[in-house]
């Protein structure tokens, strides 16, 4: 019996070890946000990158805060997120080599068809948020330090509300990803801030519709950074840099622009806009 067991163990070890060994040769780990993953963008552009370079990109999708932390710990080679100020701090602290703007999409304020706050069709997200608060209409916050969460906090701030102090029982912080937040909003007829990409590909909408869109403040910029090999020598800097370079190259930018769901473009490349 014991011989058979040892054989089995060796077999399992062999299989488990063999699986990644072949892939590990040319691969990088990219920590990114749930929005890029859930929207299907990676599913579209990564095969293009692989066919050109032969590099496997393994995407670990997390909230922006966690994604940056994964980079900070050296567990990813490239960080690809959307929270400009946090990204700049990441680079300033020496964890990232250099931040490159890649693309943007926009946020949309989602709400139930019944529109209890009466904000449908508004172009002013600040007023819309203040109305939601005034009427105590239910609002779901990601509450997970993600890019979307920090965008939401910035929007409250821009409309003159200190949400930490002024929130009431109508404001529910769920501490989960975009999809979970949309599921919760759908189930409880609440408003929620979402990135357009996740919203377009989200399937369990129920009664949810777009309440507010098109405000410039809803702009959502993505940046990409190579994790600093000086901090973490194990970072695969050559492959990682290839990926960063490809994303901002004309070829990568075109690939991003070409990704559409139901004929609708989700992300707008803007690597050439140095201030973005």
């Amino acid at each position: 019996m014991f011989n058979r067991r040892i054989l089995l163990a060796a077999l399992a070890l062999g299989i488990a070890a063999a699986a990644p060994a072949s892939a590990q040769e040319k691969s990088i780990v990219v920590s990114s946000t749930t929005s890029t993953q859930d929207s299907g963008l990676f599913g579209y552009i990564l095969p293009l990158f692989k066919s050109k370079t032969g590099i496997d990109v393994k995407v670990v999708s997390q909230g922006t805060g966690q994604a940056l932390d994964t980079g900070r710990r050296g567990d990813a080679d490239v960080v690809f997120v959307h929270a400009k100020s946090q990204e700049e701090k990441f680079v300033a602290d020496g964890f990232g080599v250099k931040r490159f703007p890649v693309m943007y999409n926009d946020f949309v304020l989602i709400g139930p068809k019944s529109d209890p706050a009466g904000i449908k069709g508004s172009k002013d997200v600040g007023t819309a948020l203040k109305t939601i608060m005034a009427k105590g209409a239910p609002f779901i916050s990601r509450g997970d330090k993600s890019g979307t969460h920090s965008a939401e906090i910035n929007l409250w701030k821009a409309s003159g509300v200190d949400i930490e102090k002024e929130k009431g029982p109508w404001y529910k912080s769920i501490g989960q990803g975009m999809g979970a937040a949309l599921n919760t909003a759908s189930a409880s007829s609440a408003y929620v801030l979402a990135d357009r990409g996740t919203w377009i590909s989200f399937k369990n909408r129920g009664d949810l519709i777009i309440a507010v869109e098109g405000d410039k403040r809803l702009f959502n910029q993505y940046g990409v950074m190579l994790v600093n090999p000086a901090k973490h020598p194990k970072v695969k800097k050559d492959f990682g840099q290839l990926f960063v370079d490809w994303l901002v190259s004309p070829e990568g930018q075109k690939a991003i622009a070409n990704y559409k769901i139901n004929g609708e473009q989700l992300f707008y490349p803007n690597a050439s806009d140095a201030g973005a």
Binding site: A16, A19, P20, Q24, V60, R73, G74, D75, H232, K234
Partner: peptide, 15 residues
């Protein structure tokens, strides 16, 4: 984690 005690094994995010 690469910052952890067994980081040199390079096993995080693998099967």
């Amino acid at each position: 984690s690469r910052s952890g005690p067994l980081g040199s094994w390079g096993l995080l995010f693998t099967p």
